[in-house]
Write a protein that binds this DNA or RNA. Structure first.
Length: 299
DNA sequence: AACTAAATCAACCGCTCCCTG
DNA sequence: TCAGGGAGCGGTTGATTTAGT
């Protein structure tokens, strides 16, 4: 059952109510004292029952007709984000995380648009996921999530590292989290990962292009890659290896903090074939790594 | 066990878009 | 064509929960 705790009626919220009474679309609702803050069980039931009988839409009218002392906006939000029967609760699956990352790389903060492609998930939930999980990593690196630095760190550092991890896991025949994995799934995961890295490097003419063979990408080749990479920023050519070293140190010094979150997600992975590849994604989350199609095509 | 910091997420706000008269 | 209202979107806030000391 939902905890019902009334928020303070003062502060900005109360001021907002006054603004509403001063001539906004909320004018009619302000005739009665509007409730704010967390919804009570009774309110939820009232809203659910009303929508079951009359359908949704026309939220301001709905709020009045249902006898809810809430704004239409509030009713709509409560319904869409919480009460809808098909709303999915709980942690995002690996597939969902992957989809969010991919779609965000295409559309940016178009949360509603992204949510349309994740059945049962709300824009609010996706937005919260992005802000808490992804932006956290950017913050740890003292850079903006949209910065070239962060994107490059994902592309050229974390991705190869992830491939290495996957490779290592597969080579070790890891059975802890993927006890059902067989050679086929391992190879498939590695192929996908290799294709992802290749897609990253293909976008830059100066980058070393890997083959689709998982075996061709080793720690040694990654090391050589770091040394050879050059990147141009603002007309100034700098050594990628220098700043990568810095980013690398910072990032990996924080992995012990990130691991619990990764474990939390990993145990929920449903697609065994995908799970091996996605493993570690919660550690170095990507914003604009590759297109999902690139991955699926390689399978 | 108590306290603090960090993370999470429901709810709110302001703005914009779209529809209707 | 324009104005007004409703709906939806993205950003932000702050209460609660969880993790760490």
């Amino acid at each position: 059952m939902e905890m019902v705790l009334q928020r303070s009626s003062g502060g900005a919220g109360a001021m907002a109510c006054h603004r509403a009474a001063a001539g906004s679309p909320e004018l009619q609702e302000s005739a009665v004292e509007l409730r704010r803050g967390p919804w009570t069980v009774d309110e939820d039931l009232t809203l659910i029952n009303y929508i079951a009988d009359h359908g949704e839409g026309r939220w301001n009218a709905l709020a009045r007709a249902a006898g809810l002392k809430r704004t239409g906006k509030s009713c709509r939000l409560r319904w869409l984000n919480y009460l809808r029967p098909d709303v999915k609760r709980g942690n995002f699956t690996a597939e969902e995380q992957l989809l969010i990352l991919d779609l965000h790389s295409r559309w940016g903060n178009r949360w509603s648009k992204i949510a349309q492609h994740l059945p049962g998930r709300t824009d609010n939930e996706i937005k919260n996921y992005w802000r808490t999980r992804v932006q956290k990593h950017a913050k740890q690196l003292n850079c903006d999530v949209n910065s070239d630095r962060f994107k490059d760190a994902m592309k050229y550092l974390w991705m190869p590292r992830l491939v290495e991890r996957i490779h290592a896991t597969a080579a070790a025949g890891d059975g802890s989290s993927n006890s059902n994995s067989n050679d086929v799934s391992c190879r498939s995961g590695l192929t996908m990962a290799a294709a992802a890295v290749a897609a990253c490097f293909d976008s830059s003419p100066s980058m070393v292009t890997t083959t689709s063979s998982s075996d061709s990408f080793t720690s040694e080749s990654h090391g050589e890659l770091e040394k050879s990479l050059l990147t141009t920023r603002g007309g100034e050519t700098i050594s990628c290896g220098d700043w990568m070293q810095h980013v690398d140190n910072e990032f990996w010094s924080n992995t012990h903090n990130i691991q619990p979150a990764a474990d939390k997600y990993n145990h929920q992975f449903q697609d065994q074939e995908l799970s091996g590849w996605v493993q570690g994604f919660s550690e170095g989350v990507s914003e604009s790594l590759w297109s999902l199609e690139d991955i699926w095509k390689t399978q």
